[in-house]
Design a protein around this nucleic acid. Structure first.
Length: 932
RNA sequence: GCGAGGGUAGCCAAGCCAGGCCAACGGCGCCAGACUUAAGAUCUGGUCUUCAGUAGUUCAAGGGUUCGAAUCCCUUCCCUCGCACCA
């Protein structure tokens, strides 16, 4: 019975029967279709959001399989990386939150959890869980091909790939400023931060001032303001240090010294010097040659830049106010701001203008940051350097900044100094995060213009679903630059030419879709035999197969299986991977494979919500996929996830909505059981058969276009509502004609990709042999489409609607309804109006017909009413009506039906034979009605 | 801030690219009726306002183009995703 279907035993039974049937091998007699999904990182249990990511591709795979394709749908597990190490560590430390997450939410058995101190145990456990739940959901995966990214064979594959990419000069060594936690001795990513994830790395220029035999560097983002420097600021409460930095003598704060060391500078501390000893001394602006006094300023932060600041009071509001405050106390009154930039809408001293405009009383005013930003932006976008700026006079600020920076760093001993834009950037370990320069880091050079150009050229050949994401891919290709591809810690494959590094997770998962094609066979070969030459032969067809560690026959097999499946047809992933993984894989395919083996298509998913909120394991806002499958049944979960939104849209899981999907499946089940004894023929059979052809066509079309939601709507709601009308129209006592057998067989197949368990069960129950999963997809038969019968049913439905809306309005005990059918001359008008392009001219056109003009105002009215009616009908229907519909015959045949439906006696009359004023309202396809 | 995508009736969600088939597909929820001892399930109808099957006002807000706009253009507000050492 229907209700049993969702019970796990029945599913289990079907699952047992499926067992190995989805294992897919090359079959030269069939076209192949290769779909794959971004593989999961198994560090926790799957929730319903993950579910959709794998169910949609499965639905597509099942659809095409029934279309006769040889379908490959593989799955593997991405185990590369560091997160799981952290998890293991936290479990070892008995971290409460982590134990709760894994013990309570993911329900890992106690004895297993105890072993989670080993990261490998964690990933293996969840990989098994993933497979089990994926199987429970009926995913038609070829599980022989499962692997993890840390098995030796896969590592050999990665080594092979990077041997090529490195050989092409696409992996480069370089310097790179990163956020870094000295306590962990590791770079930190966004997710490693406790605090300060919005902070950016700022790039300052150290501008040098001569101070005796020492130099004083001042950090600035606006080096061109060197022309307007009036003084330096030093903090009298700070003790500075004298140090040798890269062999030069500098005065800096000790914080700055530490930061410089992290940024690859050699710093030797010589002695200390209190801030007070600097104050009121004079330094020399080595660029302009002018003397600049050093003034006291408590606002100067030793933990920012070099701890010494250059002052440009004409253009920096902070400097302006600091100087103003001192001068108000009668000090340093001889210092005048030196303007160097002219900006529209500002006077000669913009800092003064803006400070006065906002009436800023002192430098602690909270508006300071805002107005500083305002002035800086105005100067950057519209400012020009004035005559005080020597060789740079007349340049835009933008240009001058660039030129001055280059000149300073290349010729005048300046350096670029990196600093976080906020001080409070805190690592998960609790330590402060700094900027560090990594200098022997390996990078994938996605910035290489030639490589970019190749990918740009390839992209138009890739089918993208939905098409709107194309532009995002374009932008990503442009935006990508060097990607650090190596890490010091984590699981994964070592960089073959520099073993102290491991490949970073995104970098080792770029072309594994190719590996799937042979993964089940290659695991049988010892890894040490898998030299780059072996892979060269398998994937590129290069080299002499008789002279390799692997025997020729095996190599040949692997090569031909790869060529059978590759290139892949569709890759599925959520949209957040566009800006990295999905674009990376295009780069790598381009670098490794020839033009005929490039990715053919990608389908990008929206995100998942749970009860309107973002799903998040750490916040506990998740619904585990397994729980959903146990509670509602796999088919219900599948149908809900497919039906709630198109793949590329965001979807929202709500338990109360899922329940009604379950009822829908049960309804289908019931309808099919009910039609078991259908036999003979009924007058309405032709209509149902005709409608079914449309449903088949549109379902097919939607699945082909990945519109799984729309496809389901056609396949389920469409067919169900047709069946409802069909049953309504059946003669008294009839349980339906034999046509139902065909219809139900088609319906089961249309639904099979979405609800495979139910379909499999019903397929057997309705007496079919074999698996519906491999049955032929229904094909629409044009010959079964009967337009005229569809039109007469439509006329009937519309008229019934009209009768019912009148009945509802009149509130009388009605006994009888009279249908007045429009006269011939109104049909002529309809035909004329239907043919008129510009509906504003209908009356004129109608009146050119002698016989109609004779009708006078009646004809005018009828024409206008017809225009309105036509606007409410589909074009196909309009042309069908224009060709002529015999309403009288239709209504006479359906009179008994109308009587039964409305519980009224029915009379059908030609409108012209009645004196009733309402009869005049009759139009073609819209009889006048009188209820009495 | 920058890049991309969105905002449609109680909720989810079609339509928008190719302006009139739109009071706006479909589903859910809710209301009423039928069936039933009853509940559930199922079926039928209703669900902006108004009304003998009509008409009026709607498609984030405000302007504009057009005979005509949810659909095209401009402005504003709000939401989602990405912005990089990472799953």
């Amino acid at each position: 019975m229907a209700k049993n279907l969702v019970m796990t035993e029945v599913e289990q039974e079907i699952r047992n029967k499926w067992n190995t049937v989805f294992q897919s091998n090359p079959d030269e007699s069939k076209d192949k279709l290769y779909v794959n999904v971004a593989f999961p990182y198994p560090s926790g249990a799957m929730h319903v959001g993950h579910g959709r990511t794998y169910i949609i591709p499965d639905v597509i795979a099942r659809f095409w399989r029934m279309q006769g394709k040889q379908v490959l749908f593989p799955m593997a597990f991405h185990v590369t990386g560091a997160p799981v190490l952290g998890i293991a560590k936290r479990i070892a430390k008995k971290d409460e939150k982590t134990l709760k997450l894994y013990g309570d939410l993911y329900r890992v058995p106690k004895e297993t959890l105890a072993n989670f101190t080993d990261p490998i145990v964690i990933v293996n456990y969840f990989a098994d869980e993933y497979e089990r739940v994926m199987k429970q959901l009926g995913l038609s995966i070829d599980w022989r091909r499962r692997f993890t990214t840390i098995i030796p064979q896969y590592s050999k594959f990665i080594e092979w790939q990077y041997t090529h990419i490195y050989g092409q000069g696409k992996v480069i060594k370089g310097e790179y400023p990163v956020r870094y936690c000295p306590a962990c001795d590791q770079p930190v990513g966004d997710h490693d931060l406790l605090e300060g994830d919005t902070a950016e790395i700022m790039h300052f220029v150290f501008v040098m001032y001569q101070f005796g035999e020492y130099q004083i560097p001042c950090a600035t983002l606006r080096p061109e303001t060197i022309f307007g420097v009036t003084n330096l600021w030093a903090n009298p409460e700070t003790t500075y240090i004298k140090a040798e930095v890269d062999g030069k003598k500098w005065i800096i704060s000790s914080d700055a010294a530490d930061k410089l060391r992290m940024q690859k500078h050699v710093v030797n501390e010589l002695s200390t010097i209190p801030g007070t000893e600097l104050i009121d001394k004079v330094a020399k602006n080595i660029y302009t040659g002018s003397d600049v006094p050093i003034l006291p300023a408590s606002f100067v932060d030793p933990d920012m830049g070099s701890g010494l600041v250059m002052s440009v009071p004409a253009h920096a509001p902070f400097d302006y106010i600091a100087l103003r405050d001192l001068q108000e106390k009668g000090r340093y009154t001889d210092i005048m701001p030196i303007p160097l930039v002219t900006v529209p809408n500002f006077g000669r001293i913009p800092a003064k203008d803006i400070v006065e405009k906002y009436k800023i009383p002192n430098q602690d005013d909270p508006r300071m940051d805002e107005l500083t930003q305002e002035l800086y932006s105005a100067e950057f976008s519209k400012g020009k350097l004035n005559e005080a700026c020597g060789p740079h006079a007349g340049k835009t600020v933008r240009q001058a900044r660039e030129d001055v920076t280059r000149e300073f760093t290349e010729e005048r001993g300046s350096i670029i100094f990196h600093e976080m834009s906020q001080k409070r950037v805190i690592c998960r370990c609790g330590g402060r995060v700094y900027v560090k320069i990594l200098d022997d880091q390996w990078f994938l050079n996605y910035g290489d213009p030639e490589w970019k150009a190749q990918v740009h050229e390839q992209l138009p050949k890739v089918e993208l679903v939905p098409p709107e994401v194309r532009i995002e891919f374009e932008r990503t290709i442009d935006w990508l630059k060097e990607w650090p591809c190596s890490r010091r810690v984590g699981l994964g494959t070592h960089v073959p030419w520099d073993k102290k590094w491991l490949f970073e997770p995104l970098s080792d998962s770029t072309i594994y879709m190719a590996y799937y094609t042979i993964s089940h066979r290659i695991t049988k070969i010892p890894a040490e035999k898998l030299t780059p030459a072996v892979f060269d032969y398998i994937f590129l067809g290069k080299g002499d197969p008789t002279a390799m560690p692997v025997d020729e026959a095996t190599l040949h097999d692997l090569r031909s299986e790869f060529l059978y499946w590759y290139p892949y047809d569709y890759r599925f992933s959520a949209k957040d991977l566009i800006s990295n993984h999905l674009t990376f894989q295009l780069f790598h395919h381009k670098a490794i494979f020839p033009d005929n083996l490039q990715p053919k298509g990608m389908v990008v998913f929206g995100m998942g919500l749970l009860n309107g909120m973002k799903m998040s394991s750490s916040k506990g806002n998740v619904f585990l996929l397994e729980d959903a499958a146990n509670e509602f049944g796999a088919d219900t979960v599948r149908m809900f996830l497919v039906g709630s939104a198109e793949p590329w849209q965001d979807f929202d899981w709500r338990n109360e909505l899922v329940l009604s999907v379950k009822k829908q499946i049960e309804r289908m089940w019931q309808l099919i059981l009910d039609s078991a004894d259908a036999a003979g023929t009924t007058p309405i059979d032709g209509w149902l058969e005709s409608r079914m052809q449309h449903r088949i066509m549109s379902t097919t079309k939607c699945f082909r276009a990945f519109q799984t939601r729309q496809a389901l709507q056609e396949a389920y709601n469409g067919v169900a509502s047709d069946l409802a009308w069909y049953r309504r129209r059946l003669p008294e006592g009839s349980n339906g004609g034999a046509v139902l057998k065909d219809v139900m067989s088609e319906w089961i197949r249309l639904m099979a990709p979405v609800i495979p368990y139910t379909a499999e069960e019903l397929w057997a129950e309705t007496g079919h042999e074999g698996f519906v999963s491999f049955a032929d997809w229904p094909v629409a038969d044009e010959a079964k489409i009967n337009k005229s019968v569809e039109i007469s049913e439509e006329l009937l439905q519309r008229t019934l609607d009209d009768i019912q809306s009148i009945l509802k309005l009149v509130q009388i005990e009605a006994k009888k309804v009279t249908l007045f059918i429009a006269p011939q001359w109104k049909r002529e008008i309809f035909t004329i109006v239907a043919g008129v392009e510009d509906k504003r001219n209908v009356v004129k056109t109608v009146m050119t017909h002698e016989s109609l003009r004779a009708k006078g105002k009646e004809a005018t009215d009828a024409s206008l009413q017809t225009v309105k009616l036509i606007h409410s009908l589909s074009p196909e229907l309009v042309s069908a009506i224009a060709e002529g519909v015999n309403e009288e015959v239709i209504f006479k045949a359906a009179a008994a039906f109308i009587e039964k439906e409305c519980k009224l006696t029915v009379e059908i009359l030609p409108a012209e034979e009645s004196a009733q004023p309402k009869a005049k309202a009759a139009l073609p396809f819209k009889p006048a009605l009188i209820v009495e």
